[in-house]
Design a protein around this nucleic acid. Structure first.
Lengths: 233, 233
DNA sequence: CAACCTATTGACTTATTTGGTTAATGATAT
DNA sequence: ATATCATTAACCAAATAAGTCAATAGGTTG
């Protein structure tokens, strides 16, 4: 809404350093966040932060809008909701999410926590968050609605199967993020190959147990005929 | 270690109200926790809190020890690590965890976050947390070590299968906790039946896809021959 | 070099919050 | 009544809060 022109024309590295410092500090609630911590973490002076944003509240509202716009543009809009293979669909969205998390490590948690706080605590920027959450939910719903359930074995509960797949993916991401959080510094890109490799194996097992058997006659069970969408990695 | 006798002989309801208020407030870190918030949430005066615990730091250390002892006595010690059926094992531990979470809603997060903070932040009570975490890890390891992998289908990666099962369980719990958090008040016990029902269905699907087919000739695939351990519900 | 402009600093202010204290009060049993 | 206990709420000095502003750094133009 307002003009944060001066801030937005900063060199991207500095800009995102400030954004990440602020989002991370706001993770534990608006009130508990300290502007002193933000500027220390971002490596800028306090005057500069208030030069750009005026007040702590305007900074917070800017972050909400920025996070929403970013997640929309670089995640929600890129998800292919018409992908009939739910495993491919979730795999693709996990990749997108991971890419975004590398640039903005706190962005998803920031939005989630802010939404929870907005609903329970003091009134901060509720409208945009409410709309955004509804939009996110709708996209997830659509992904599941467009899933081709005929790919699944006939004898299993399809809803339960899709839930299990979803929880497995988020559980795996969560475990991996936890793990990488222990040794910071050159971690993300370093372990990324191993990460993808493991992830694909998990995916293969899910495919193996939930999908109908393909009519491939090759003896190796490893080689299953599917192609993963190539996404910016 | 120290004598918190006076506090521990309080009426249980008041005692646990204070403990829960404090654990919840400490969720976002030792420094950011405010004793004023704790006493307001617990419904006691500030003088009383400091009468019992002396300093904020002693309160925190007490909470760490209390949480560790409680989780050990009411969770870790009750888990049957010799249960060969990993699905039963995880199901049982999920029930125990849920029971403990009803009494102390923040206890697991409190320990997890405090451990993370202890390793990265200022030095607070690192020793006990380190030992406790190692003990927890060891038990999880033992559960998986005692799992009878011959129950699994021969053609799937057993490690991957067990990971998927674990993530599914934690993912389901997490989703349910989120959901129940939205409408507080008489929620836990109310939705508990439905919760168990859904949970059992999920469990059934996992059993269906990961386990070897049992030689039951009954046409209905719903009726699978297993018995869940009865745990205090 | 001088003049100018914008980006940036960090010491500063004022108000609130912090952890912690203490004198007074309420309650209970002898 | 009195002694003993738990409990309170006002209080304190120190720290921290958000926000300000005069001064400076750095670059561009003349």
């Amino acid at each position: 809404m307002d003009d944060f022109q001066k801030f937005l024309t900063l060199e991207p590295e500095k800009r995102e350093r400030i954004i990440n410092a602020a989002m991370t500090e706001f993770l534990h609630g608006f009130k508990k966040a300290s502007t002193d911590n933000i500027v220390r973490e971002a490596g800028i002076s306090k005057g500069l932060l208030f030069h750009y944003f005026g007040t702590k509240e305007r900074l917070f509202n800017f972050l909400i809008d920025y996070a929403i716009d970013t997640v929309k543009a670089e995640y929600l809009d890129l998800v292919n909701i018409y992908q009939p293979d739910i495993l491919d669909s979730i795999w693709q969205s996990s990749l997108l999410k991971k890419d975004l998390s590398v640039r903005f490590p706190s962005i998803f948690d920031f939005l989630t926590n802010s939404y929870v706080e907005a609903k329970t605590g003091v009134g901060v920027a509720t409208d945009n968050l409410e709309r955004f959450t509804q939009m996110s939910d709708k996209i997830i719903t659509e992904i599941y609605a467009h899933a081709d359930t005929s790919l699944f074995r006939d004898d299993i509960d399809k809803k339960a199967a899709m839930n299990i797949i979803g929880w497995t993916m988020s559980g795996y991401s969560h475990a991996k993020i936890m793990e990488s959080g222990e040794n910071p510094g050159a971690d993300a890109r370093e372990n990324y190959d191993q990460y993808l490799e493991e992830f694909e194996k998990i995916l293969g097992v899910l495919r193996q147990v939930f999908y109908k058997k393909t009519k491939v006659e090759s003896g190796e069970p490893e080689s299953i005929n599917y192609k993963l969408k190539e996404v910016t990695v």
